[in-house]
Design a protein around this nucleic acid. Structure first.
Lengths: 191, 191, 191, 191
DNA sequence: CATGAATGAGTGTTCATTCAT
DNA sequence: AATGAATGAACACTCATTCAT
């Protein structure tokens, strides 16, 4: 019946959705969700405004998909971390975090921004707090296994440092000695 | 009707400006700059929309004044820190930072949000980077005076920790053990 | 692939057009022409949006066909009314009108709505006025033949009553005693 | 404080609201609620689009006010009807209805149109059915007092005739012999 | 000094219509 | 014959800003 095959349609859809999501992430990340208009997204994505609403119910829905994609990536990365040696696992975590910071700058900018406003977009806030608790607990376990005495406090500090690095890297970017900090932390905690 | 003295007028001005700035900070901090309308500010401040434009050129100008006030407060606080003993100065810095976090939550929320968006409001971004550099340098000096070996890296880490604490406190708020962290850090660095 | 005969194609066409018209009438009648989207029609009809434009130039064209079909049905019904006895003809008219009200509720809803808006869809308005004049004249003739004195005014009143019944039935629907009214009128005019 | 007096502001408001409501009624009545855009209303009213939203929450809110005004007028007219002599009251009702038809054509067009679509704007539908029941009951009472035997059915017919007149007058307008029908009905029922 | 009515460019969103296949 | 991805003009609505008083 349909002269374009199902697969062809699917490919068109995928391509458009990809373009829209990419453009959205770019814009949300650099100028913020509120400052980004659908018109801008359409322009950057190279599609019409209307098409965005073929695939997403609303601007907020675009944001949601972006964040769901993110958590999927995050969960995937998490799954690859574990090693029999807790020190190695810890090292993997360090590596992962720094890689994440380098690879997902736009996304981090977006998430950091959203978590600051509690009332709006509760789902982002909730997600962020849940994930944060999760990884503090993981750090606690590992530090305990490694034999660190004040492991609870140290886990807290470590997670704090990670967030601090994230913020500073986002703010001063090229001036921030990310590589140097990475090696230093690994030496200090995983030696 | 009743002839008002110059001083009386001045007082009225000051009071109105104060009300506008307070309302703006409150709203910008909680719901964000973009989500706050002039109408809302006027309502919360208890003045008319028009009056805001008597004293401020634009919504952005209100933001600017807010941030200028902030830096003035910051500079004032800085001036009170110095002591002959570098360890005491360092301790003062710690105390100041935690006090700041507790007292200026709204402002911090606002600033953090703005620094993430590169293109918009360059003046906030510039200010933030300048200040950050300044206080990293100060920390370096102090840590060197105290006799810390790797003082450069340690200063960086310390500033990173501060930012991390700021972020986490803003995000998880009441669940964050701010007092505990404060004492722990002081014990660690100023003992 | 399988070569379809001309007749088969024709049947497909007919079937699709039928589905589209049925869906349109259903939707136009219940939610109104303006509130019905082509997408909705396509969904209800079980065809694609594009197909609708294979058979109809525009949404308005669908409406036009619907109304043309209607007038054809109306003319057909009219043709079956006439009897040698004018009283019987009158009775037939009564029966037809009530049957019409019961059977074509959706259509009536649609037409009534359209006739009210003067500027838009002049063709509906014109059609309605023409038809109305026609049937007032017919009623006049019949009432005259029956021997009614003030037959002109009575014809006017009768047509007015018919419209009134139509409106009230559409508005209060199940609460309207249609059967009762029908019998009462027939007793009054055709006894 | 305010250099424009409260009264001046009030007058400005009233004038603008009046212009907006007048334009809305005109447009809703002629082309229908759905076919009327806020931009059109603004143009006809001679104000900006934005101003409409200073005074009305939404397009629907404009409609609501229009209809509330209408019911207020209707209630006022109702209050003036009653007379000791039921025949005189009935006559008053006739006069009122014909006056209403002549004076509030746009409004009638609007209301008739809205009552046809049950789902949308329930409040119009409800209002219409409530009012209709009310006035059928009133007619029943009067016809009973006058001594009419089958007063229930006659009241129904009478209300049906009123609606029919309304519809026909709206549809064929200048060709409808409203005056003639009025006198004829009064002669028939109030003699 | 202070008001709030008024504006218009901009927002997110809808939908009739087109078109490549 | 049939599909549904894509478009763009229109829509209802928002809001920073202006201005007469």
């Amino acid at each position: 019946m349909s002269p374009r095959s199902k697969q062809q349609f699917e490919e068109l859809r995928e391509a458009s959705i990809r373009k829209i999501l990419d453009a959205s992430l770019e814009l949300f990340g650099t100028t913020g969700y509120e400052n980004t208009s659908i018109a801008q997204i359409a322009k950057v994505a190279g599609v019409s405004k209307g098409l965005i609403y073929n695939y997403f119910e609303s601007k907020e829905a675009v944001l949601k998909v972006l964040i769901e994609d993110l958590t999927a990536i995050g969960d995937q990365m998490m799954a690859d971390l574990f090693d029999e040696d807790p020190k190695q696992t810890l090292k993997n975590i360090f590596r992962m975090i720094f890689r994440w910071l380098r690879d997902h700058e736009k996304m981090n900018r977006l998430i950091f921004g959203m978590t600051l406003h509690v009332d709006r977009f509760d789902f982002v806030h909730e997600l962020a707090t849940t994930k944060m608790k999760g990884y503090v607990e993981l750090l606690e376990q590992l530090l305990q296994q490694i034999g660190m005495e004040d492991y609870k406090t140290e886990a807290r500090i470590l997670s704090t440092i990670f967030d601090g690095i994230g913020v500073q890297y986002l703010v001063i970017k090229e001036d921030y000695p990310l590589d140097e900090i990475e090696e230093m932390l690994i030496k200090k905690y995983c030696a």
